[in-house]
Design a binder for these strands. Structure first.
Lengths: 346, 346
DNA sequence: CTGAAAGCGCTTACAG
DNA sequence: CTGAAAGCGCTTACAG
């Protein structure tokens, strides 16, 4: 005999009462509760997760699906770790566990998620690296799994999401550059189908338009998330008939390669060409000249995701009455030396 | 009615037969099996995980516990992602799922793990960031959970582990440096209680002794895993009465700060001071002069962990008869320019 | 406040 | 090859 039955026998009471005492139900006498808790402690009892989930119809755990493929995972460094921390600080309070589900390289993301969803492994999901048309969103909706995405999708479906404020970042950085006379401002966007590629590019275009600057498709560079991509992008920029006078980088880490290529060409960021990075990353803090970039609180992002998720789960909705969250996390400009230069006079 | 019962009713057969058909048992007629599988597909049936785990007494999932605290997680970049990929490539084959369990910053690691173990959330565990005296190992053994650790512990308990071959790395790198005349070789070791701090330092000492070089405790620098720590370490080295002529870095990322501090002092790695980094990381590939360091296959490491773990799980032991794995993953020297210089003649 | 009992959705000896 | 039934370890109306 094991589990709750063992406790019940030991104490000479019914399993129902043990269960109620353990779960903090009000209809248990203080003495009984004390005896049960003491026995549980003494015997090192912990409720079996599977039995509990089966009886209650909920698992008490939320999944956070991430991609392992190079494009999204490489150099993701502290990003997800920080976000996980934020999420847990919120859901821990509500007795929920976080299970990170890493989709292996090359494995179909939809099939991977489907397996977990259909088998009822988690009560709710957080999805990272949202694609332009992300079928996983339909999957979760069809299975009535509460969820929130890190990043918007472009599907004509409303769902809870938290994203970075790309619009504001594009506005702030471009306005700075334009005010200093820059007109040929290159932008790098991610490779692949992640949705923020489109979001960021749209924001870039919109800001240019607002300032009366023409959009030039030749100034858009698709880069992967690594140093080499920054090097190559710089290389291509330098080879242009009329090179850009400023660059906006979507992946911070590309700054390392870009700096290197510029250095080889005898160019100094902030003197010969203006460079603004998108997100502050530890590995770029040591660049010289220091990089102007946007700072993001990973913990805050995680906390926002946690709150948004709880707001989608019926039993938490009264405590987190946020409705269908659609919000953007603020990005704060950290001014460095890399964009100090005005545009060269023509 | 739902789940298996629905299928059974739909087909007019018993739930037992449905279960046997679904699970590929041999004692089911081909026609029945086909009908069951077709119906399951049609109705989008997937077995409930909790019910299955309860009935079978196993969950079919393995946990991989990582730390979220800055010291071990920050700049861990692709490290774990690569390892997860390797682990999954192995356990997927056996029908096991990988659940990553990220222990929040500041939360007690033992208590965090205990919760998952006692509730029976996972069948087996992989532990990262093993401490010198890691009570989690005793916890898993007491609960008879099959496990393997990424890193050795110093407990007088035998358990399955996979570690990096610090001994060989110390030997190869120090032998190179000593052959070039270096005698004052600084070493950086991690902060905190991670076990490889001791392993690496011991290997460093042993190699020096073997070459007849005296160990000087002043040449040991404790560094955290970030750029700034490398900067500070270099700073302290330069301030010494007799500075080291060579440096062995345990964390690659510290090379960035170290390079910077050396540069400020007008010193060039590979010309004025020899630098060897421990593990190849993408962010240091762009350093100039290029860094001599050790390359590690993360996927191979993950695969080794997966195999070692399966060897600890009774039902897989015949397929993976490896016994109690205690092995070190090879590290391959990637020669760069940073340690090209011989020691200056005294 | 407590107990007896049904039920959560599966699996698996045991008969036949 | 298939069905009936017990059981996995919990939770939760329902009585009392």
């Amino acid at each position: 005999m094991r589990g709750i039955a063992r406790l019940a026998k030991e104490l000479g009471i019914s399993t129902g009462t043990v269960s109620r005492a353990l779960n903090g139900r009000p209809d248990v006498s203080p003495e009984t509760r004390e005896r049960v808790l003491a026995a549980a402690r003494r015997l090192g009892y912990a409720p079996n997760q599977a039995a509990r989930a089966l009886a209650q119809g909920k698992t008490g755990s939320v999944g956070f699906m991430i991609d392992l493929d190079q494009e999204t995972a490489a150099s993701s460094d502290y990003f997800f770790m920080g976000v996980f921390d934020g999420v847990q600080s919120v859901i821990d309070e509500e007795g929920l566990d976080l299970l990170v589900l890493p989709c292996p390289t090359g494995k179909d993301r939809y099939a991977y998620l489907e397996r977990f969803v259909q088998r009822g492994v988690v009560d709710a999901m957080i999805l990272a690296a949202v694609q332009h048309h992300d079928r996983r969103i339909e999957l979760l909706q069809a299975n009535a799994i509460p969820f929130v995405t890190l990043g918007r999708s472009s599907l004509p479906i409303r769902h809870a999401w938290i994203d970075l404020d790309f619009e504001s970042a594009a506005d702030v950085s471009l306005s700075r550059l334009i005010a200093r006379g820059h007109r040929r401002i290159a932008v790098t966007i991610p490779h692949g189908d992640v949705n923020f590629k489109h979001v960021f590019l749209d924001a870039y275009k919109a800001t240019l338009t607002r300032h009366g600057v023409d959009f030039d498709p030749d100034l858009v560079f698709v880069t992967r998330r690594n140093e080499a991509a920054g090097y190559e992008a710089a290389d291509r920029m330098l080879a242009m008939a009329v090179p850009p006078t400023a660059v906006l980088l979507i992946y911070e880490v590309t700054a390392i390669g870009l700096y290197r290529r510029l250095q080889e060409a005898g160019l100094v960021p902030g003197r010969d060409i203006a460079v603004v990075g998108f997100r502050d990353e530890p590995t770029t803090r040591f660049l010289t000249p220091s990089l102007t970039c946007f700072r993001l609180s990973l913990t805050d992002l995680g906390v926002a995701l946690g709150h948004a998720l709880l707001a989608q789960i019926p039993r938490f909705q009264s405590k987190f009455p946020l409705g269908l969250v659609e919000s953007r996390q603020p990005l704060e400009l950290r001014v460095g030396e890399s964009d100090a230069n005005p545009a060269p006079s023509p």
